[in-house]
Design a protein around this nucleic acid. Sequence first.
DNA 1: TTCATAAACTAGCGGTGTAAGTTTTCATCC
DNA 2: GGATGAAAACTTACACCGCTAGTTTATGAA
Lengths: 218, 218
Amino acid sequence: MPRPRRALLNRDRIVETALALIDADGLGALSTRRLAAALGVQGPSLYNHFATKDEILDAVADTVTGAVDTSGFAGRDWATALRDWAWSYRRALTAHPNIVPYLAQGPGRRPAALAMADAVYGGLVRAGWPPARATHIGAALRYFVAGSALGSFARGFVEDPELYAAHYPHLRDAHRLAEHQQSVDEGAFALGLDALLHGLAAEYARTVEPVESARPSG
Amino acid sequence: MPRPRRALLNRDRIVETALALIDADGLGALSTRRLAAALGVQGPSLYNHFATKDEILDAVADTVTGAVDTSGFAGRDWATALRDWAWSYRRALTAHPNIVPYLAQGPGRRPAALAMADAVYGGLVRAGWPPARATHIGAALRYFVAGSALGSFARGFVEDPELYAAHYPHLRDAHRLAEHQQSVDEGAFALGLDALLHGLAAEYARTVEPVESARPSG
DNA sequence: TTCATAAACTAGCGGTGTAAGTTTTCATCC
DNA sequence: GGATGAAAACTTACACCGCTAGTTTATGAA
């Protein structure tokens, strides 16, 4: 087939299909040939629209990151903004867990990831956090969210009662964790996020608020 | 070459060499042929000692997890034990960051990973945390540690000043994060861990201690 | 009308995990 | 001590991988 009258491919369609395949079968199962086949096309045709496979994955990753809501940082309550952002971030990633290992390597040059980092950091600094501290807070929350989305804790345990009974007495019921996967993982996330925010609020009250309230803009 | 007089390979040597290659060139660069070549042998010979490549990776992952120290949970101060464990866990993973995406999928059937989970969960329950809460705490800390080891926050930003200057005003200095990689990542981890523990201590004081102190064993 | 560009194709390179079968050595049992 | 079976290396081969090169033809602009 030579060049068709109407283009069969475009970047959006490729990204969309790639994400669907990654969701269904995992990052490792996405090959250019399989992706092309799903699009009704031969493998190398993709290279008319993307230079490399990684460029496709970048676009997929940025689509996922684009669903994260950072609008809370426009307001003034940094703690609420942080909580809302963390949950939105988690929802966006757990909706497509198979892409998380790729995405977790950092924002790189992906616009949505950079915009997110910009909004979070800017919001924290505006709230009075010292720049270095704002960086740490953003990083710590990224660690937590990425870690929680990377691998379900509950699903990480094999469903084989005898495995635990034999050698790991405290894990006697671990084989049943998967049954309650969502509530375990979300409960752990909620606990950790609340504890984190609780600790940050304590530091804020100790180190930032005294200074802020002394300034006219505070 | 037929069967040699003295075996050229054994599982330990394979695992050790695989870990070295992964450390040096990344998980994606480890192929059975490259690994075999580093061992002075042809690719398929590895299959006399391991059934699949994943079995090799499992062994590598468990070696890394084996370096984590959970001995603190033998004592009685759960908070100190948790802090020491988290740092030890982080050190073990950041020593071999390229294997983290594999390892973060959960303990599976890997003995060292299961032993670690057993020690942590057992320690928390022994300290009086309700079982469901102990699960959440262990999971939350795994999220945080795995996320922090998965990808350096500081190294995730490209070293290209113009990229940020153009569109991300708050990230003006992000291109210099990599210069302070270790201090940024460790500072973020320390901040997050302290905040987490601070929050957990507050919950413990509110919900567990009253009950514990009323019991003869508390 | 001409012509560069775009978007599909086919063919092919060097790499991948691993299955199958071969050869030789070693350890064990009668 | 000779037979036997397992072990540990090998070679060959398959189907797949990312990607390059060169091809054909349709499109849109000069």
